[in-house]
Simulated assay, not measured.
Amino acid sequence: MRATIYYRGSLSSCNYDCPYCPFSKNKDNAATLAKDRSQLLTFVNWVKAQEREGHRLALFFNPYGEGLVHRWYREAMIELSQMPHVDKVAIQTNLSAKLDWTDDLNPKNAAFWASYHPGQVDEASFLNQCSELHRRGLPFSVGSVGVKSAFSALASLRQGLPTDVYMWVNAFKDKKDYYTAADIAFLREIDPHFERNAVDYGSQGSPCSTGKDVFYVQGAGIVKRCYKDRTVIGHLYRDGLEGLSADRPCRMNCCDCYIGYIHMPELALSRVYGDHLLERIANG
């Protein structure tokens, strides 16, 4: 079968200190890091074995923290990108790590979701990292949270990026009616698809690919339908993909995050993002 797997290990620390993020306040000890490394190695070995089972996989790492500052995430990206049955391996990252290792990636299979954090990194440094990915021909998107205090920084970043790099903006939803019509028009100039993200999609009972051919895997192998749905549907290493797969309508009242609502068939967002749905690169 073809399946998409989101993987999140035990890592829960970041090298940035964003005030809105709880994981920037954590510092993982050596035992936790060793556990995260062991879990990731187990996952990579499981992925490798799926070639014999005839499965084709798309993989996305979205750790609670920054993964690429740790060698085992970089090594996993390289190894997975070169597996013939892995169609995509992507990671959510702040791009703070050195990028020389990316020379060993298969550029046809590897991709990056790069998050920009004004106040944590200067624009020139971040743009330099983006230029490194662009020069290597590695697909990537760039984006940030659309808080009003960051509007000027977002506009400046958009101007500094190559024109063929898609920049997304995540809507800030902690305050009701946060954006004026002028704000929305401004953000649409940066991200033509901003308003898709600004919506909370009523989803309870609606069809969703999660739990059928999209799975959220926690480090020990525990599998959930969706990262927001806490119900455990099985264990990756015990049940396998066929044992996990079933039609599972959404149990949540609404879906408000990109990595969730892109899997609602009724939205047909593959028409917008094509083969770059995971790393969030819009067509055109």
Rank of each mutant, 00 (worst) to 15 (best):
Y6W: 14
Y6F: 15
Y6T: 13
Y7G: 07
G9E: 04
S12A: 15
D17S: 14
P19H: 04
Y20I: 14
S24V: 05
N26S: 02
D28M: 13
A30H: 08
L33D: 05
A34G: 10
K35S: 13
K35W: 02
D36R: 11
R37Q: 15
Q39Y: 06
N45Y: 02
W46M: 02
W46S: 07
A49T: 12
R52L: 08
G54V: 02
R56F: 06
L59M: 12
F60H: 14
F61L: 10
P63V: 11
G67D: 02
V69Y: 01
V69F: 00
V69D: 06
H70N: 12
W72Y: 13
W72N: 11
E75R: 14
A76S: 10
I78H: 00
E79N: 05
S81G: 04
H85C: 00
V86I: 13
K88F: 01
V89I: 13
A90T: 12
Q92M: 11
T93W: 05
T93A: 09
L95E: 09
S96V: 03
A97D: 12
L99Q: 15
W101S: 10
D103A: 03
L105I: 07
P107L: 11
P107M: 04
P107A: 09
K108D: 13
N109Q: 06
F112H: 01
A114Q: 04
P118M: 08
V121C: 11
D122K: 14
D122M: 10
D122T: 07
A124W: 07
A124F: 08
A124Q: 10
S125T: 15
N128R: 14
Q129A: 14
